[in-house]
């Protein structure tokens, strides 16, 4: 069982990245593991880059994952994955939603959205999928969180039941079915 791992979640303010860290925190807590989660508040509704750190282990000190030490990078957006590349350790895994959201310098035409931002993650194991499309298929674009968590779940040793319990404790009851469906779809993603 991976009783110790460091994970960084990145995305764009408004994408709902905080739900993913909440579920992971619950999962670790239910398993009796130590956990710390560091969040960004204030700017999160304003469309800026956001980052959340999740650290799981017997004894966790700092609430932020040091650069070069993340086992996993969960990215809700392609450019943000590239921006967070330095967090991954050598054999770390990037799990990325391929959605592209233009930041203001691109919107105004001052800069171009990089053609292959994922190139900055060269040398790391890289799992990318159109998780937004899958979430919409599952029934709600907000379930994007759960698709990415499903992809992450394949790397961790928590049982399906443990995941379902953590998800159930963190999402509203009426969205549970859609979220579980999205999670299961994420688990089934085939490496590209």
């Amino acid at each position: 069982m991976n009783t110790k791992f460091d994970l960084v979640i990145v995305g764009v303010g408004g994408q709902g990245t905080l739900l993913a860290s909440k579920i992971l925190g619950r999962l670790a807590l239910n398993a009796g593991l130590g956990v710390k989660v560091s969040e960004v508040h204030g700017m999160s509704q304003r469309g800026g880059s956001v980052i959340t750190h999740v650290r799981v282990g017997q004894e966790v000190f700092a609430p932020m994952v040091p650069l070069g030490q993340a086992d996993y990078l969960l990215s809700f957006e392609l450019l943000e994955a590239a921006r967070a590349a330095a967090y991954l350790k050598q054999d770390g895994v990037a799990i990325v939603n391929t959605q592209r959201i233009s930041p203001m310098p691109v919107v105004t035409g001052a800069m171009a959205y990089p053609e292959t931002p994922e190139a900055l993650l060269d040398g790391h194991r890289f799992e990318a999928t159109d998780a937004l499309r899958m979430a919409i298929q599952a029934g709600n674009q907000k379930a994007l969180n759960l698709v990415l968590l499903g992809m992450l779940a394949r790397h961790l040793d928590f049982s399906n039941e443990a995941w379902y319990e953590a998800i159930g404790a963190c999402v509203p009851r009426k969205t549970l079915d859609v979220n579980i469906k999205a999670f299961d779809m994420g688990r089934m993603v085939v490496d590209q």
């Binding site: 764009v12 590349a85 900055l120």
Partner: peptide, 16 residues
Amino acid sequence: APQVEGVEDLPARPPV
């Protein structure tokens, strides 16, 4: 701390 070359050249994403 490790650095990744090229990250600094990415378009910034300030809050708006």
